[in-house]
Computed example of a mutant assay.
Amino acid sequence: MGNGDQQGSGYRVPAPGPDARVQWPDDFGTRFTIFVDTEEEFDWGAPLSADADGTRHMAALPPVHARFAAAGAALTYLIDYPIVTSPLAIEVLREVIRDGRSAIGTQLHPWVNPPHEEAVNGFNSFAGNLPLELQRAKLVALTEAVERAAGRRPLVYRAGRYGIGPDTPALLAELGYRIDSSMRSAYDYSDEGGPDFSAVPNDAFRIGSLIELPFTTVFTGRMRRGGAALHRGLGRLPHGIGVASRLGLLSRVALTPEDMPLGEAKEAIRVAVGEGLRLLNFAFHSPSVEPGHTPYVRTEADLAAFLRWWDEVLALLDRLGVRSASVDEIVAAACRPA
C-alpha cells in the first residue's frame, strides 16, 4: 500500500499489565477464530484513493464460506464502508451468516469512510493518527451503517492497517464494542507513522471493558525464544531475516495464508498450541477469494493454493483438538470465572 507524505514515529502500544491477560475457563479449551478483513478492491501497489470502492469479489464469497462452514469454522467479517454500502456485499453477507455462528463486525479504512475531512495519505490511513473528533465521527458513521445492514450492533472492531491509537479503546467502549483486534503481535509500523506492536503478546488481554485479541504471530525455529527483539536485530543485517529463516533459526509467522507458506504456518500452529496459547487468531482479506485483487491471489492457481492452505490448516487444528470459537462464545467465555 502506498506510503503518505507525512512520516514519523507512531503510537508505541504498551505491554499489558500482568493482571490484564484473559483467563479462559477450563472448558473453553484451546480455540481459534478467523477474522476476515472484508473490504473494497484496490491496487495494493498504488497510492491510496478515496475512489477505490469496488466490491465485485463478494459474489465469489459464498462457495468459499461454505468450505469453512463445512469444516465447522465460524468466520467474522470485519466490514468497511464500501462494503456496508454495497447492496451486493450486504446481500451476500446476510446469506452466509445464516450458518448461525459467523458474524459481522467493523473495519475502519479512513480514506473511504465519511466524513472526508483529512488528506488521503499514508499517515492518515492509520485511523489513530486522526484528530479525536474525526475518529469518532468516522467510527460512528461506520458503526451505525453496519448496525442498519446487519440488524445487530457490531461487537468486534479492527482498524484498517492495524491503525489503532491511544484513544481507540475508549471510543470503542463508548459505542458498545466488546472485542478489538487492531493489534498485530510483534509487528512494528512506526516507520510509516503507524503503531508499534513489539511489546504486544499473542494472549488475549483486557483494556478496560474491551477484550483485545491480537492477530497471532508465532516465532518458529531453533532460536525462537529470541522473539521480536532478535527478529528486529536480524532486520538490521543484510538479508539477515531471510538467511535465519532458510537455516531454520528464526521465522516470524503470522496466521494467514497471505504470504505465509503452508509448512511454516503448520509449524507455527504446533508451536503456539504446544506453548499453551488458548486462542489463535487467523485472518485474511476478502478480495483474496477472487483472483486479481490482492498480491496473494493473482491467478486461479493462487486461489487453489489459498484454499488448500485453509483445508490443511483446518484439518491440523482438528487433529490437535483446537475448535472454532464464534464472537459470542469468546465474549461469553471471557466474562465467566476462569
Rank of each mutant, 00 (worst) to 15 (best):
A170D: 08
L210C: 00
E300G: 13
G10H: 00
T294I: 06
Q107D: 09
F306M: 14
G17P: 01
G100S: 08
A103N: 13
P131F: 09
A127N: 07
G226Q: 02
F123V: 05
T85S: 14
G274N: 05
V13F: 06
L172G: 00
E290Y: 03
P169T: 07
G208M: 07
Y157V: 02
I79C: 15
P169V: 06
T217Y: 02
P62M: 08
E192F: 14
A268P: 00
W24Y: 05
T106N: 10
E174K: 04
A74M: 07
L171M: 06
D27A: 13
C335I: 15
E258T: 07
S251H: 07
V112D: 03
T220D: 02
L132Y: 14
M260N: 10
W309N: 11
L93W: 04
E312K: 12
A52F: 07
T168M: 07
P201G: 08
S182M: 06
D5S: 13
K138Y: 04
P287T: 01
T143R: 06
G233L: 15
R270T: 04
P115M: 05
A338F: 11
V120K: 12
M260I: 09
D80V: 10
D43P: 01
S190Q: 10
A325G: 10
A338K: 10
R56D: 15
Y11R: 12
K266P: 00
Y81R: 13
A272W: 05
E41N: 14
A334M: 14
V146K: 00
A159E: 00
V96I: 13
H231Q: 07
A66N: 08
I164K: 05
T76A: 09
V327F: 04
N121G: 02
V146W: 02
G165W: 01
M223V: 07
G45K: 12
I211N: 01
V218T: 07
Y11L: 14
A69K: 09
T294D: 05
D27S: 13
G226N: 02
A325D: 06
T299W: 08
L280P: 00
L142H: 01
Q23P: 05
F197R: 09
R224L: 04
P18E: 10
V146I: 06
E40Q: 15
A69M: 09
N124L: 14
I104W: 06
I97D: 03
A71F: 14
L75F: 09
R225K: 13
V22K: 06
L88Y: 01
R12E: 15
L130I: 00
A145G: 01
A159Y: 01
E264S: 14
T143E: 04
H57F: 08
L172I: 00
P154H: 01
G163T: 01
W111E: 12
V120T: 08
A52Q: 12
S288K: 03
T30L: 10
A315D: 15
R152P: 00
M223S: 11
A332E: 14
L48V: 07
D19V: 12
G8R: 03
F284C: 02
G321I: 14
A52H: 09
L210M: 00
A15R: 11
A283G: 08
R178S: 11
A332N: 11
G263T: 13
L247F: 04
Y187S: 15
E174F: 04
D318W: 13
R319I: 15
P154A: 02
P257Q: 03
H57I: 13
G100Y: 05
L130D: 00
P287K: 02
V253G: 07
S251Q: 12
D99A: 08
W309G: 11
